[in-house]
Design a binder for these strands. Structure first.
Length: 297
DNA sequence: TGTGGTTACCATTTCCCTTC
DNA sequence: GAAGGGAAATGGTAACCACA
């Protein structure tokens, strides 16, 4: 039995129950798991299922409930984001391990963001509401600065992790890249988490890690992608508000309700000549100026 | 009262690491 | 590569509980 065996079973169980909206009996679950795990049909026992059910709730926050009325088990909540990501990561790992005979034919991006060692300590600091000290170097500055901050939340963007924290030097909430931190120290000094700070709400209308400036409201952004690029952004949307509309000449336009921040500018610039900003005009001008400067370089 | 889900406890099996 | 031992996973059973 591999150490991966139980985890694979848990994920199989979740996927099976997700596909069975109306629920599944213990017999159906047993047969599916037995087939999936290549074990004898009667080897997935009730006792193991009960243990799996508890482990799934603990590890993935997926609650499997039994309904005595129809004698079926079903998932009663949506897997939390962290659980979903854990499942995806494990599925990838499992698939890769199964293809080890194909070494050299499954290629990974070797670029790895630095600073992931800070992730767990910072998470603990957020949980315990204690101040953190660290040395920080901005990308546009040579010098390091010493920071003391109240850590509030973590956010991922393009393979890097960022800390949202209140900088005690100027009492401004800022975003710090973990890859630019060093000499992290978790203090014992407690702080009160500000009730008004809601990171999910703060970034709801944003792309990337640049939070909106005070009072900034989302705007309607209209884009015209090339046919090829349109397919790409449809399969990997920029923002949850993204939708398609028909333009005046029957062409497909992409519309987003979003704060027009630096990260979004950079993302659109990365598409080169495959996208045209139609509105708002001030944002189109900004993109045009950047492209003009880029051409001059 | 019977049925079936849940949980606790202990036994057994299997895996994996270390040592030779 | 084989053997031994520890750890983890799994199996078996009994007791408890809710519900029809």
């Amino acid at each position: 039995m591999s150490a991966l065996h139980p985890i694979l079973r848990h994920i199989s169980l979740i996927q099976f129950l997700q596909s069975k909206r109306l629920g599944a009996s213990l017999k159906q679950i047993g047969e599916y798991i037995a087939a999936r795990m290549c074990i004898d049909g009667d080897k997935y026992l009730d006792r193991t299922f009960q243990r799996d059910k508890k482990a799934i709730l603990d590890n993935y926050k997926v609650d499997i409930a039994y309904n005595p009325a129809d004698k079926l088990y079903r998932i009663v909540n949506t897997p939390a984001e962290v659980g979903r990501q854990a499942m995806e990561a494990f599925e990838l790992l499992n698939a890769v391990l199964q293809t080890e005979d194909f070494a050299g034919r499954v290629l990974f991006d070797h670029r790895r963001a630095q600073g992931m060692a800070h992730f767990q300590p910072l998470l603990n600091a957020i949980k315990k509401c204690v101040l953190v000290k660290f040395r920080y170097q901005k990308f546009d500055e040579e010098a390091y600065s010493q920071r003391l901050a109240e850590p509030y939340a973590m956010k991922e963007f393009k393979g890097r992790w960022y800390l949202m924290a209140l900088d005690m030097a100027d009492l401004q909430t800022k975003t710090f890249g973990l890859d630019r931190m060093s000499m992290l120290e978790i203090t014992k000094k407690k702080f009160d988490y500000p009730e008004s700070y809601n990171p999910q709400q703060l970034f709801e209308n944003c792309f990337g890690i640049t939070s909106p400036y005070h009072g900034q409201q989302p705007e309607e952004l209209v884009l015209a992608f090339s046919q090829q690029q349109h397919r790409y952004v449809t399969s990997y949307p920029l923002h949850k508000s993204q939708r398609d509309i028909k333009g005046p000449n029957g062409e497909i336009l992409t519309v987003l309700n979003i704060c027009l921040n630096y990260d979004l500018e950079m993302e659109l610039l990365s598409y080169g000549d495959q996208v045209k900003v139609l509105s708002p005009e001030h944002f189109a001008k900004r993109i045009k100026q950047r492209l003009k400067r880029a051409a001059e370089q």
